[in-house]
Design a binder for these strands. Structure first.
Lengths: 192, 192
DNA sequence: GCCATTAAATGACGATCATCATATTAGATG
DNA sequence: CATCTAATATGATGATCGTCATTTAATGGC
């Protein structure tokens, strides 16, 4: 249809946005190509003119989802005081637990990612390291760079593991206690 | 065929064992009923005389897998000194990272579990609490019971999150550093 | 050694999966 | 306004999904 130039790019972007939500909500294997396209307001046919495969869309979605939730995390953390405790409070907020589709892609998909393509895992690794950096910058300057780097990894592991457990357990009270334990632990790990 | 009594029970057990391996390896949605039965040396037909649904098998497999890896963790930890650091070293050993099918079911399946039935999540919750207790028992007696309980949750979150990240990243060196960071963090969180 | 019983195998159900070939149609270009 | 082209839709591929009805076959009880 000889659309305005950039039309296809923007459609592709819409697909990635919609897919990144759906993948986080239902898992990479929990949603099909047709449903992903429908979520973007399209039919399934044109999919392969935008992406080489479903795996390629997953790759792009991971990048999109990780970037998006990283940005949002930064914004939210600022409101809480912008230190590691603030990050933890933002990340481990019940709203985040209850809305995986808008939240951290790592928490929603980490175990599956280990089974996916090198490209997908590379995209994930790059974004994960940006996340580490975000935490590093909020650790006390009294720590060495190497110490900050190591701690940032463990702090994110704690946040992600905590969020996943809080989502998986079948007991609302326990879920709340798990979230609290994560906030306290992240704070403790951030001490000089 | 009027087999010896207990034959069917033992077949059922074999299916659960095999399924618990496969679910951890490929995810709950990554493997079909036919493949699960084949893994146990059977064909798919008899499946529904053993289980009400695939979901019911998942439920039993979570229970089996969590119990199994809990027992193994206890055994391994003993060799390392039987404190929290020992648990962390056992849990975050490269062998565990490289063999999810024999390892912790929580680390392999946590995000998916949040999307499954109440029964499955209840089975998971019960086993998770046994895991918390295991850690609690290895925390210093100088801490209050409430403190030990809270810390045990955060310590397991750290271990699980660390293992998942170490599995997902596309960089062997980074993976090793992630594992180390988790061991150090778990040790730090276990201090009185 | 046959029979009754029942575990397991065969095979089929409609639905959905990822992928692709072909047809339609929107809209910028002339 | 008519035309051309590229973006999307339609529709089909064979494979696999979970589930179930029917058939086969093994063996303890007689």
């Amino acid at each position: 249809m000889r659309y305005a130039k950039g039309h296809k790019e923007s459609t592709r972007e819409k697909i990635v946005q919609a897919a990144s939500r759906r993948f986080r909500q239902d898992g990479a294997e929990g949603v099909g190509v047709a449903a992903l396209m429908a979520e973007a307001g399209l039919t399934h046919g044109g999919f392969y003119s935008h992406f080489e495969s479903k795996e390629a869309l997953l790759s792009a979605s991971i990048e999109e989802g990780m970037t998006q939730s990283l940005d949002e995390l930064i914004q939210l953390a600022k409101r809480y005081g912008d230190d590691v405790t603030a990050l933890a409070r933002a990340y481990l907020h019940p709203r985040h637990r209850d809305h995986p589709e808008k939240g951290c892609a790592a928490a929603a998909l980490a175990p599956e990612l280990a089974r996916h393509s090198a490209t997908t895992r590379a995209a994930f690794t790059a974004r994960l390291q940006a996340l580490f950096k975000l935490i590093e910058e909020r650790l006390p300057a009294t720590l060495s760079a190497a110490q900050r780097r190591e701690r940032s990894m463990a702090i994110f592991a704690t946040l992600m593991g905590t969020l996943q457990m809080a989502r998986a357990v079948d007991d609302k009270g326990l879920s709340e206690r798990i979230l609290q334990s994560g906030i306290h632990a992240a704070t403790a790990l951030a001490q000089g």
